[in-house]
Design a protein around this nucleic acid. Structure first.
Length: 195
DNA sequence: GCAATGATGCACT
DNA sequence: GTGCATCATTGCG
């Protein structure tokens, strides 16, 4: 039986998808081995009208993937050395996506540690958007990858204990929107707000 | 525990 | 030239 989330999961309002992604499993298959983790933190990016989104300048840029069909990966490169992973949402042309900010490692932990470094504590393997990309070997080659394919996908997990919201992390514009969602019961969230 | 800072590539005001 | 949807390390307490 397949627990893989279908494309219809992503073809819904972005804020809905962002919340329902909490507790689901992010799965990466490398050489037949499963690496997976439970999603505990997401952020919604709401399209061309969102001042904090790469989509704010339209589809003529690295953000083009976000304007494609839902259920695909948007992987971008930033700060000269890091990748971050998003799920494209809503209808083609909407320019919307959900950033996966943190997971709790479940399967393939030894391989993740090899990818991240020998001295990294388990809870620090993937508790940040660039960390989880490194732990799951997600890079530019997976940009536009089909999330219903066999390299990278999501599966039904368990409901989060306690959903909280906050402003998004690491942005300077659009702070008034609380588009970050996280499971407050998890130790794996990347940044604890000070409110 | 915390704050400050350097690393490093690329798209764009 | 500037500013990133970031992280590891350092220095201090």
């Amino acid at each position: 039986m397949s627990r893989k989330l279908p494309r219809s999961f992503y073809d819904r309002p972005t804020l809905t998808v962002a919340q329902e992604l909490l507790g689901q499993l992010l799965v990466r298959q490398i050489d037949g081995e499963r690496l997976s983790g439970r999603i505990v933190e997401t952020e919604a990016y709401m399209g061309p009208g969102d001042e904090a989104s790469h989509a704010r300048y339209g589809p003529n840029s690295r953000a083009a993937t976000m304007f494609g069909p839902p259920g695909h990966a948007y992987v971008y490169f930033t700060y000269g050395m890091h990748y971050c992973f998003n799920c494209v949402t809503e209808a083609e042309g909407s320019g919307t996506a959900v950033l996966i900010r943190a997971i709790e490692p479940l399967e393939g932990i030894e391989r993740m540690r090899h990818l991240r470094g020998p001295r990294v504590a388990e809870r620090d393997l993937a508790n940040g958007p660039a960390k989880l990309c490194q732990a799951l070997e997600i890079d530019a080659a997976l940009n536009q990858a089909d999330l219903t394919g066999d390299a990278l996908w999501l599966e039904t997990g368990s409901a989060p204990m306690q959903i909280k919201t906050s402003p998004r992390v690491g942005i300077s514009r659009g702070r008034e929107h609380h588009y970050r969602f996280y499971d407050a019961a998890s130790v794996g969230v990347s940044a604890h707000p000070k409110y």
